[in-house]
Design a binder for these strands. Structure first.
Lengths: 202, 202, 202, 202
DNA sequence: CATGAATGAGGCTTCATTCAT
DNA sequence: GATGAATGAAGCCTCATTCAT
């Protein structure tokens, strides 16, 4: 009986395993290739080769090149957002929140370099989805800024502009850091948080 | 007789004129098209049509598509650099210089939207030249930061990171402003300069 | 013990059963899918899915996509031919035979829509085999026409052309009827037989 | 002056000539290739090669493969319709009209074999446009039939079915004739018209 | 000089067929 | 036997670049 069941239960499992492995190899490959060559420079054939599969196989997992790209952006944005939301809820006051969020941002970047290269790197933000993802963060920042200004913790100013400035600082420094292995992410986070803090505080 | 000589004297001139005019129309067209569609979205045929000339004509003035792009980046970078150098030389101290430079940056962006979009816009920095142009500005900033830190005007910090942060703030806010006509460039410049100033000052 | 023997005696049977059932399901599925989408529109994956089996299984029963198609054409042609031969043998004279054959043709079409669509439908006759199957019927008609002409029952004429005309009438009207459920097959058959009869009779 | 105008007037003319010639070669090539291989068998590369141009050139004249096909069908249908309308207006009574139309049909077929192969040949009617073109003729036939029946010239019957029968006769005999060089189109037309006439007449 | 028709390499995508499990 | 994941040849289409006029 047990022997009889094996082929009926294990087979699907093994297949599922294989599928999962290939899927995994494809995302990973796509991540590496997209990070290295950018959206336009990355060819489906490159990704397939990097994943060690045939071109056709790519299309078993993604309908188009755009689809992988979007998925990666989505994944990155969602994970980052969730971690940053955690940071937000753990902070005691707007200034604290701001600092934590910057730290989380860089921490995440350190752990997901390729993802960051894709979302914030060169040849990335040409796509709507990326811009929309970035806007998501802006909204949260604006909220925090408003709170801080009303509480008198931050100087008065135009929160929309400030938020853009903060996002710009982070994106730019991150995309610089991503190409410079010799600096610790924490160092960059600290420096950026420092400027932000001092720049905003009342 | 005098009339007969005209074509022999004037023709070269007229030709030179026409050449110059066509050249002018091509850069202008390239500027508009590249700004609007980005490098990958801009087709040579688009540029030629926009300039009111044939495709072949384009190649009389530029050897490749990349060439126009590079020239425009060069032009933009040179002009901006020159204006910012003026600002630098007119400033009295690093803090003052920093503020002026930010203002010049926004002024330039306001005056040359298309050029700015090409160099700092989405789908821009995928190219080495653009990045190198951006680095040029970073270098100048780093110099200024070092001076300010040594003079005790700025807090101590990593000038490379700070420079990236400043550049990021400016690019992002300008990119945002470019799409929001309802805010004055000066207002944005002021807000950004404010954060920068406070963020860096000792 | 007897129970132990069962699997050794029955298994082959059961396997044969299962094989037969799968085979049956595949032809049926192929028939439906090919009829619905035509040869080019029908994908092997479609047929397998419709049959409730894996793609690989398809290839256990047919060496190629063409093979199923050919088999179905063959099946259809054979069945139809056999029915029409019956009609032929039951007729008393060429005119009678002609009428009966037309009725059989419509009857068959009504009973085997999918098969009919495959052999006579749009996107069908692109294949040699289909054409050859169609020619088979033409040959029989030609024979009948010749007989009728010689017997003075039909007017004199070119039997090859007449046969094509008859076949064309039938195929076209059946194809039309297949999409118009509101008319009885017998009605159509009668009308067509009427024109044919009057058109050929001496 | 005249010399000055030459380059400005003749050049465009020469270009237009060239364009027209290439266009002509492309339609002709498409016609031949589509007629010979059918829609699915015809590859863009085949057509381009047959026309003696590069693949890209094809796309200067047609956006897709479907487009040439449609144009050819359209052209064929329009011309044929116009000629058949002429025949209709010249006929004295429904029976006469019917005969003339059949003759025009075959005459046209004789002059445009490839066009007919494309529209009425194997692997053709899979496309909506072809079917719609065929329906256009059916409508005209139905009108004529109704007239003839009411005038007592034709037997009473279902005009829709009769029309399909007539169309089927013509299409089938034509697509048979198209592959048989040894029979004169007039001969086929005569035979078909004969059956039709006798088949319908009161 | 100017032109725009022509080119073809290169990228994306599909799907019949194979094959390891 | 059955399965479905994997394959890659083949076809469509784009567009930077060339070149005859």
């Amino acid at each position: 009986m047990a022997l009889d069941m094996e082929p009926q239960i294990d087979k699907p499992d093994r297949r599922a395993d294989r599928r999962a492995r290939t899927a995994q190899e494809l995302v990973a490959a796509a991540q590496r290739v997209l990070a290295a060559k950018g959206y336009h420079g990355a060819k489906i054939a490159d990704i397939a080769r990097e994943a060690g599969v045939g071109v056709g196989t790519f299309y078993l997992y993604y309908p188009t090149k755009e689809a992988v790209f979007l998925e990666l952006v989505e994944v990155a944005a969602t994970q980052l957002k969730s971690q940053m939301d955690d940071a937000t809820s753990q902070g005691n006051n707007p200034a604290d929140v701001s600092r934590r969020r910057i730290q989380v941002f860089f921490h995440f970047a350190a752990q997901h370099r390729d993802l960051f290269r894709i979302v914030f790197g060169h040849d990335a933000s040409f796509h709507d989805v990326v811009r929309r993802a970035q806007e998501m963060f802006v909204t949260d920042i604006v909220d925090n800024l408003r709170g801080g200004m009303e509480a008198g913790i931050f100087r008065r100013g135009n929160p929309d502009i400030w938020a853009q400035a903060l996002v710009g600082m982070c994106i730019q420094t991150v995309s610089w850091w991503v190409e410079h292995d010799d600096v610790a992410a924490e160092e960059v986070a600290g420096q950026v948080a420092g400027i932000a803090q001092n720049g905003m505080i009342a």
